[in-house]
Amino acid sequence: MQRITTILTVLILFALQIKAQILQPVKWSYAAKKTSATEAVVFIKATIDAGWHVYSQFVKDGGPVKTTIDFNPSSTFALAGKTTEPQPVTRMEKAFGMEVSFFENTVIFQQKIKLKAKQVMVTGKLEYMTCNDQKCLPPDNIEFSIPVK
């Protein structure tokens, strides 16, 4: 009887642990590619679980938290233009009472840079918010570090 009680206790604790895990429907990855001796492109990719979406960089005020990518200043590179993104899905979202642009499945943000050194490490942080049709998770901030080789 004591053995059954112990096994049940372990199973209940295991089930509670699984349920208590933090929901992370977006995975971020990073890369950079030199396009010449003095230029490169930095890629910031979000892989988004089915049913979830991440918002565009160009969401109007009053809506969800837009994706924001901030690059730390560096003497080894300079930003060339603004961070670009592919064409998002745009639709009316009742929760925000406005049309909102977002990405599903995957999105790759790109930033061109001018290289000022042979060894370059692009660092910064991004803020994003993810929602599905039932709920939104609080905005998240992630730091990144991307070597340019």
Rank of each mutant, 00 (worst) to 15 (best):
I146Y: 09
A80K: 15
K27Y: 05
K114H: 06
K114C: 00
Q17A: 14
V100D: 01
G51R: 02
L137K: 09
V120R: 02
S145A: 14
V54E: 02
H53C: 05
V148P: 09
K33Q: 11
A46Y: 03
F77M: 09
T38R: 04
L79F: 00
Y55K: 08
V59K: 01
Q119S: 14
K112V: 02
K66H: 10
V41Q: 02
P147C: 11
W52G: 01
L115R: 04
K27A: 11
M92D: 10
G124D: 09
I22K: 12
K118C: 00
K60V: 07
A50T: 12
I4D: 13
P25Y: 00
F14C: 12
T6N: 08
S74H: 03
F102A: 11
E39A: 04
K82T: 13
L16T: 04
I108L: 04
S75L: 13
N141K: 15
H53E: 00
Q21W: 04
K19H: 08
A117M: 03
K114R: 10
I7E: 08
I48C: 01
Q119Y: 07
N141V: 15
S74E: 06
V10Y: 08
P139I: 09
E104M: 10
P147F: 07
F102E: 03
K82Y: 09
Q111V: 05
D70R: 13
K66M: 13
V26A: 02
I4C: 06
V148R: 06
P73C: 11
S56N: 10
V120Y: 05
Q24W: 00
K125Q: 15
N105G: 00
G63F: 03
F109I: 02
Q134Y: 14
K19L: 13
T5S: 13
F71N: 08
Q2C: 01
N132K: 08
G63T: 06
G81L: 03
N141M: 13
A78R: 14
E143N: 15
N132P: 09
T130D: 13
T123Y: 04
R91I: 06
T84V: 08
I18L: 14
K125D: 15
E99W: 03
G63V: 06
F71L: 15
L13D: 02
K19T: 06
I44C: 02
K33I: 06
A15H: 05
P73R: 06
E104I: 09
N105E: 14
I142E: 15
T90N: 05
W52M: 04
K114G: 00
T9E: 12
K135D: 10
T68E: 14
F77Q: 07
V54G: 03
E127N: 14
P138Y: 12
W52I: 05
R91E: 14
D140L: 15
T123M: 12
H53R: 11
P73F: 06
W52C: 05
K60Q: 11
L11V: 10
P88H: 07
N132Y: 05
C136Y: 04
Y128H: 10
R91K: 14
A95F: 11
K114Y: 04
K27D: 12
C131S: 08
V10N: 05
L13W: 09
K116A: 12
G97I: 01
Y30V: 01
V107W: 00
K116I: 00
T76Q: 07
P139K: 10
G63L: 02
W52Y: 06
K66T: 12
